[in-house]
Design a protein around this nucleic acid. Sequence first.
DNA 1: TCTAAACTGGTACATCCGTCCCACTTTTTG
DNA 2: CAAAAAGTGGGACGGATGTACCAGTTTAGA
Lengths: 186, 186
Amino acid sequence: MTRPPHQRSPQQRATQRRTTLLQAAVELLTEGGFPALTHRAVAQRAGLPLAATTYYFTNRDELLAQAFSHLVDQELATLTHHGLPALPDQLAHTDRLHQLGLWELYVHAGRHPRLQEIARRWSDGCLALVADHLALPPHHPRTRLLYTTLYALWLEHLVEQRPLDELRTLLTPAAENASHPADPAT
Amino acid sequence: MTRPPHQRSPQQRATQRRTTLLQAAVELLTEGGFPALTHRAVAQRAGLPLAATTYYFTNRDELLAQAFSHLVDQELATLTHHGLPALPDQLAHTDRLHQLGLWELYVHAGRHPRLQEIARRWSDGCLALVADHLALPPHHPRTRLLYTTLYALWLEHLVEQRPLDELRTLLTPAAENASHPADPAT
DNA sequence: TCTAAACTGGTACATCCGTCCCACTTTTTG
DNA sequence: CAAAAAGTGGGACGGATGTACCAGTTTAGA
């Protein structure tokens, strides 16, 4: 036991510092939006000196990109773990700003080609999730239809804080019928 | 001729200055995103002194909110003038960043209650446009369905720069059938 | 063991930002 | 016509930010 028990080797300590910084960046980003992502804030939240942020990430843009990637990975993992039908409950219970941060980054990617590939990974992951739910290939029209509807209702809920009823009914087994509005009632 | 010909009365000059500043703010916002909206940049683009921005708008937030409102008005007017079916061509031809700026502001509104009502005006306007296109009430399931699909495909195109084919087929008259994937082919 | 590389952390710098202040002119009001 | 109000423009202030620098330490490879 020549080392403190909570850190193995120095390069392991280094990579742990990296992820600590990344996690801090993600939290700040989701809590306060883009302006909250400053080197100083990240360092303080991670309990590390300011210079650590510039040492592990060349740019603020770099930090942003990697935080985005990190967030996408996390969110996609959570989503696949809980399954699509649990999405409405998750939206209702987990922090709204957390979800919002992800979508802010997604839209932000429209201006930065570097981020675009990450944005595509996010939407591809969501589409795959829907395909899995329907047991259909991703390119199938019905998969696409449910995907786009989900996409829109999700974001609309986050931004405008509208009720989730529509989304809920879409994801119940009866959605098979609901997504075919062939019945011209009213 | 006691006045220069290009300005009538002083309060007319004042309101014109207001709108000039607002227009400059909208342009900067759509060209460079949020960080581009600074008092100095707005003043410079409008050809006015820096203090004019703080004179006509108490806050940067005020300026942002009014610019957002201005942009929504503009865009909604253009959209209703050209009609929904022209949307894909418009998306393909007009500046992508311009459209993107609007959606950035829309998502940004999720964090600022003051902006939320403007965001709702935007989405309500879009929904009304779709309802008009289909000659159905806004609450009709089919209206909602086309609206959400449009919403998602539009934003996906802007952010990820994916082709617009899907959107195009949705808005052709044949969309009546395309939006009912009742045919379980494949 | 010795040297080059990686890592650490404190600090300094130049820049840009929002906002305030103040002198000055023009317009409206009583 | 006088005085109050609104409009105008130049400049300054305090604060925050990204990033560079550098002295010191620790680790890895010869």
